[in-house]
Design a protein around this nucleic acid. Structure first.
Length: 301
DNA sequence: TCGCAGGTAGAAC
DNA sequence: GTTCTACCTGCG
């Protein structure tokens, strides 16, 4: 099926949003296994100009694709909004076609976001891919993200695996979280998985107000304000979230506060107040604008 | 070899 | 309430 949609698919998929690692790329086609109606399907999507060539015709699959790449969001309206403000007017030029890359599986987004904290894009995406390979169900030659009850039983490290499994040699332990390069986040990930298995229904988050969802998700181990906002934005489509890290702080400080040092929590409050329902998109565009325009290397000094 | 970067938890202020 | 420090790991 051909879908008309202004998007930069490559930029969107590779922009480091914590919903999931980038999709597989073969030739010009991005692919991944996606759950539709509880069943895995292989999605293949290729961009040519203003059109997306999608391998499936099924109505539910198409609507899932539209959701994941946020295709129903009116980018040109957002660009008019950016262009009308002196601080933001350059941004649409530098990241044209960048859209939200939303989670197929909110639980994957929670674990990816916990993994991304105090980490690099390269490292967290590698860790999440390894978690899929070790604990996820295979569909064709893709691995799904494991369910919370499976990850809740994962070993933390070599030592625990050696003690609790029947492996005879500690050197050959490799089915544990630390082995995926997640470092000290391993216990957070496992406790979060236990929480979503035993106590908390992630789907309830979709029904909540932003404030209620934020307070709820903050209770999850390894989730602070930045990670909570990433989960709400990329995992649950709360567009009013303004995930604020040191980079967003530097950029906001440069653009709005004459370079003055302000706390990350104040930056979050400012972003939500100033940008409202556009906050999530503004944050996404700010980060990539800073990367691509050279502002980031300037602010580093 | 070692210093650096980056959010959270938990303790200290 | 805000601020400090330890936490893993890969990179330069």
């Amino acid at each position: 099926m051909i879908i008309k949609a202004p998007i930069n698919l490559d930029l969107t998929i590779n922009s480091g949003q914590t919903s999931q690692p980038p999709w597989r790329l073969n030739e010009d086609t991005f692919s991944n296994a996606v759950t539709v109606d509880g069943k895995p399907l292989v999605f293949k999507v290729k961009q040519s100009g203003e059109y997306l060539d999608f391998n499936l015709n099924d109505e539910k699959a198409v609507s899932k694709l539209r959701y994941i790449f946020d295709l129903d969001y009116d980018l040109s309206k957002f660009y008019r909004y950016l262009d009308n403000q002196p601080e933001l007017e350059d941004m649409s030029r530098f990241c044209n076609g960048l859209r939200l890359f939303l989670a197929d599986d909110p639980f994957e987004c929670v674990i990816s976001s916990i993994c991304s904290a105090n980490n690099s894009i390269k490292r967290w995406t590698k860790s999440i891919s390894l978690i899929k390979q070790k604990w996820g169900k295979q569909h064709m030659d893709y691995c799904m993200f494991p369910q919370s009850n499976v990850l809740a039983k994962a070993y933390l490290d070599d030592e625990e695996e050696f003690n609790l499994s029947d492996i005879k040699d500690i050197e050959s332990c490799e089915n544990n979280l630390k082995n995926c390069g997640v470092g000290y986040r391993a216990p957070y990930m496992r406790r979060a998985s236990e929480l979503f298995t035993l106590e908390m229904d992630l789907l309830e988050i979709f029904k909540m107000s932003y404030d209620e969802a934020f307070e709820t998700i903050l209770e999850v181990p390894g989730v602070g304000p930045k990670v909570a906002d990433c989960i709400l934005l990329y995992g649950f489509n709360f567009r009013e979230a303004f995930p604020s890290d040191v980079w967003i702080k530097r950029i906001v400080s440069h653009l709005y506060f004459d370079g003055k040092d302000i706390s990350v929590s104040k930056v979050r409050e400012f972003g939500m107040e100033e940008f409202g329902k556009n906050a999530g998109y503004v944050q996404l565009y700010m980060f990539h604008y800073a990367r691509m325009s050279g502002l980031m290397s300037k602010l580093k000094k």
